[in-house]
C-alpha cells in the first residue's frame, strides 16, 4: 500500500552552522524500511539537484549500530527492541507527519543533518573496556568453566551495539547504560574480573570527561535500547565503582 508522508527533518550544514527543520513530501509504501523511505526522499532530492539528507546507516539488519535518528521524539522510532533500519513503514499511515531529528547530547555533536559524532564511545572503551590479553597468550578455551547463567548475563550485556540510543533518550545525556554494559560484560567473566577495578575507574573517569551527564535512574535508556540492555547493569556499575574506589588498593 502506498502512502504520502510529510517528513520534517533536521538540516544542518556542518557542526559550526545553525540547523533547522525542512519539510518534504515522500511517497512511501508500507513494505519499505524507514531508511529506504529516506533513500526515496534522497533520490527525489538528487533528481531535483538538491543535496540529499545525510544520515548514517550500514548493515541495515540491526546489528552494526550505525543508524541512529530520533523519530517522533523516540530514538530508533516507536517500536521496542528495534533499530531504525528495522523499523518498517507499515507502522505509519497515509498523511502522517514524521519528525526526524539527530541524537541530542553534548558528547554527540551534530556533524551534518542527522549525523552525529559518537567517537566519545570509542574513547570510553579505550579507557579500559577490554581484557589485556595478547594474541598467543590464551590458555585453552575450556580451562576456566563459566556457569551458563553467568555466561548468558555477560552475553546480554555484550549485546550492546554502541548505537547511542541510550544517550539520546536520556534527559541527562548520560552514557551510564553503555558504559555499564561493557563493565558488566567483562566484569562478570572470570577473565575480565582480574582487572575489573582499574577498568571501572578509568571508564567512569573517561565518561565524565567526555561530558556525558549523570544517571538519575529515569530508565528511558533501557526502554529505548534496541538490544534491550537492562538497567541492572547500571546498578552493577555503581557497585563495581564503589568497590574499586573503597576496597581497591589503587588510589
Amino acid at each position: 500500500m502506498n502512502m504520502k508522508l510529510n517528513i520534517k527533518v533536521w538540516r544542518q550544514k556542518d557542526s559550526k552552522s545553525q540547523g533547522g527543520f525542512e519539510t518534504y513530501q515522500v511517497n512511501a509504501n508500507e513494505h519499505m524500511s524507514f531508511l529506504e523511505m529516506l533513500d526515496v526522499l534522497n533520490e527525489d532530492l538528487v533528481a531535483q539537484k538538491k543535496e540529499p539528507v545525510a544520515f548514517e546507516h550500514d548493515c541495515r539488519e540491526g546489528i552494526c549500530g550505525t543508524c541512529s535518528l530520533v523519530i517522533n521524539g523516540r530514538p530508533h522510532g516507536p517500536n521496542a527492541g528495534t533499530t531504525t533500519c528495522q523499523l518498517h513503514m507499515r507502522f505509519f499511515k497515509e498523511g502522517d507527519t514524521i519528525v526526524v531529528e539527530p541524537y541530542r547530547a553534548k558528547a554527540f555533536p551534530v556533524l551534518k543533518d542527522l549525523v552525529v559524532d559518537r567517537s566519545s564511545f570509542d574513547r570510553i572503551i579505550q579507557a579500559g573496556g577490554y581484557i589485556s590479553v595478547n594474541a598467543g597468550q590464551a590458555p585453552d578455551g575450556n580451562a576456566i568453566p563459566i556457569g551458563k547463567e553467568r555466561a548468558s548475563k555477560a552475553f546480554e550485556a555484550a549485546a550492546c551495539i554502541g548505537c547511542g540510543a541510550c544517550v539520546a533518550a536520556c534527559p541527562n545525556g548520560s552514557a551510564m547504560l553503555f558504559t555499564s554494559a561493557k563493565v558488566s560484560h567483562l566484569g562478570l567473566l572470570p577473565q575480565g574480573e582480574v582487572e575489573a577495578e582499574r577498568r571501572v575507574h578509568d571508564m567512569v573517569a573517561q565518561m565524565d570527561k567526555e561530558g556525558f551527564g549523570m544517571c538519575s535512574n529515569v530508565g528511558a535508556c533501557e526502554a529505548e535500547c534496541p538490544k534491550e540492555i537492562k538497567l541492572d547493569n547500571i546498578a552493577y556499575l555503581n557497585r563495581a565503582y564503589y568497590k574499586s574506589r573503597f576496597s581497591g588498593r589503587e588510589a
Partner: peptide
Amino acid sequence: WTNKKAKGGKYAVTASSPNTSWASK
C-alpha cells in the same frame, strides 16, 4: 545543571519512553 548542559539541546518532539515516570524527569 550539569545534566542540562550534558543534554546539549532539546528535541522538537518530546515523547515519553515507556516505563518512565514523569517524576523521574
